[in-house]
Write a protein that binds this DNA or RNA. Sequence first.
DNA 1: CGTCAAACTTAGTATGCTCCGC
DNA 2: GCGGAGCATACTAAGTTTGACG
Length: 597
Amino acid sequence: MFFRNVSIKVLVEIKSFCNITHVNTILQKQTRRYKFSCLWEEEKKDDGTKWKFLEHKGPVFAPDYEPLPENVKFYYDGKEMRLSQDAEEVAGFYARMLDHEYTTKSTFNNNFFNDWRKVMTQEETKIIKDLSKCNFKEMHAYFQSVSEKNRNRTKEEKAALKAKNEEIQKEYGFCIIDGHKEKIGNFRIEPPGLFRGRGEHPKMGMLKRRVMPEDVLINCSKDSNIPKPPPGHKWKEVKHDNTVTWLASWTENVQGQAKYVMLNPSSKLKGEKDWQKYETARKLHKCIDVIRENYKTDWKAKEMRVRQRAVALYFIDKLALRAGNEKDDDQADTVGCCSLRIEHIALHKEKDGKEYVVVFDFLGKDSIRYYNEVPVEKRVFKNLELFMENKKDSDDLFDRLNTQTLNEHLKDLMPGLTAKVFRTYNASITLQRQLDELTDASASIPEKILAYNRANRAVAVLCNHQRAVPKGHSKSMEALKEKIQAKRDQVDEAEEDLREATKAAKRGSVKEKLACDKKKKALERLREQLKKLELQETDRDENKTIALGTSKLNYLDPRISVAWCKKHGVPIEKIYNKTQRDKFRWAIDMAGPEYIF
DNA sequence: CGTCAAACTTAGTATGCTCCGC
DNA sequence: GCGGAGCATACTAAGTTTGACG
């Protein structure tokens, strides 16, 4: 807080004699900080407007389809067949995925074949009636050879390509919003292809149509340079809605959902929103005890609706479960807290020596499995038994509860409180507590970084952030183990060397003494290297199925990390990479050396 | 009140790139 | 220089929340 106030004061002075848009780089950075702080300290205008001026060049469209070379053939029922351009393009989407697991699934194949036939000519549909008679192998091989060629591009080709991309980025990748140039997050329209849902998605394999300018809505200021559609085309509509933050949008055909072009997380607009999110979490910290008392009392409520709400909230708080909205059956069957079904939990009066254990086993967001054995209070256990009475496996556990009513209740407990705030809050406070517990102030920097990663990992475990085991993990572990052994041998050798040298130095001249010193240093260096390797081993193995990135990016208040770095003399670059530093610039600029909770 | 969809955040994976040991 | 592991980035699917509508 101290730092922040000083900076603001100083910056107000700077601002008083500077034109913000024309100061030099250093001042610009300072000015931005000023503007951030200022906007956040002031009551923001509460009229829902997100900007006053917005100008951009519109999105970048996917490149046109390039027909296959003549010699790449498609065969149906053993016979060569020339496909129409549209049919060929869609066939190509499938051919690319031939060695992917998707193409072994009947849902994927049926959906693809169905949609493929829709783009065929009438003659083609008359012939192509059975996917299993289609031979895409030449097409597949062709695409493989193309990507192989791309991989083997010369340095010059690569540089040229990079330059071209940068050109596009420069032109389309930025917008002007309220006098500032800001990076756009996704300025490229999604190219056509086959829909790849996660988990058992009923729509997997469906054709994702090519998006045309005629599908695209543009949002910008009336008085800005309105983006031009590609030659010969028109936008669907140009609007000037300053209550939203998107620059362009279109409706995707598979699920009928809107897609948006929005700003990069480094932008002020997104940064402010992020900051607000963590401020709400801090507010929750101030009343969490009351809220916990409150839901514990409600475990005894007369109304079943209230009891269910109280138990659900307990899970959300204790286990960091997601809210769990209802889903349609044209999506993968996944659940969160409110949508848990009887089949997703099992009750054990006693399990592995613990009393009142609830076993959770369900698929959550992205069809990631959540498995957890949790001892709970007796009262919670009894309530769950009650909720499960006379129900089928496929019935809702909380049949009197949904996310809307839960969030309405939360809003009454604290303004701005919703179910997901608990996830943010518990993640951030876990980080802070773990950092305090795991960091040894006298440890080396690599050891401190290991401590940070462990704290980060505790949060990832809490939030159930998982990833596939990296390909070749066990192999790379073995290699690392070998390296460690080799280093150990080196250390032993160096120790022996030093012993000899010490002996020589005792009776020897200046020259021998110097040699001895050198050996000492060499040994030190080797020991350092060994330690580093050993730390790396622990870190990597503990990490194999846990994804740290998601929590770091979305759940951990960056001010905690920044404060920890300052307190322990760890350079911020050791914790955050470039992208992350850009996103968290507001915290890096503002945070003092003290924690936030 | 329930339903729907708009708008925005959160999520894992594919791909590209860098850096390290050989 | 070379190859490959691992990191960074791009991509886009899948969530949450809110507010309009009937």
